[in-house]
Amino acid sequence: MTTTQEAVETGRFDTATGSRTTRMLGWALSIGLIVLLWLAFIATDPDIRIDAASGDEIGQFDAVRLIYVHVPMAIVAYTAFTVTAIGSVMVLLRRSVWWDLVAGASAEIGAVASALTLITGSIWGRPIWNTYWRWDDVRLMTTLVLFMLALGYLAVRRLEGSAESRARRAAIVGILLVINSIIVNRSVEWWASQTLHQQSTITDAAIEDLTLFTFMYAIVFGLAGYVWLLIKGFRVAWLERQNERFGLVEALEQRRAEAERTDAVNAAVDTGTGDQS
């Protein structure tokens, strides 16, 4: 990426967000997605077990395949908000523009990922818990409130004012994002004092080898996708910032050129009165 100064001097601006590395990562992710779909829908079996007492088929059947989206999205969401909080601290400590843009790009991905976590969780909950939503579940409530807090954070990033002023306001909201979600988590846990939510399934010995592999693969895929989106999001924000600053530089130069023309005309009027006299 070129800096604003270089761009103004050479007149060459970045017009895309891709680089060799991100293109390769993008292609790898595209192939990885096909592999994930194959693993999730074809290679792995639905969750069907035989109840020892009655001999009936029990389990989550095809709904279990949703964990390959739901859990990675939840992990991406919480990772993304952690990065936003770290970035926010760095903005306040070092007035870092780089971290401000990273925090913003990360929160955008976190908002989408937490929304997808809630949506896929609801779709899964309908057949398994027989309800789309549970009010007394601490993880559901925490994720929902975190999603709403993230929307507020993104709204603060779009406030009017100088870039630095926006960065500081956003950084304070970004740090409070973590504090608030901890408070919500504690208070809902205390309020509901129960959870229907699946406890961590990874330690469950009954989980099959291929299912476990697909699950882990999906998490790695989700995090790699997060990194790819974060780089792209950062570069878009960086280009926006460059555009904002270059817009000012260009306007200043036009005004200066105007002033020089006016000066020249005035000078001509003052001294070059030869043809009038």
């Binding site: 709403m148 507020g152 709204a155 603060v156 406030l159 009017e160 919500v184």
Partner: peptide, 21 residues
Amino acid sequence: LLSGQRARETILPILLLPVLA
């Protein structure tokens, strides 16, 4: 946080209500 902002009336509820939950 929102002082001097014209959009304050619409943003304040989004920011504050989840915090007060």
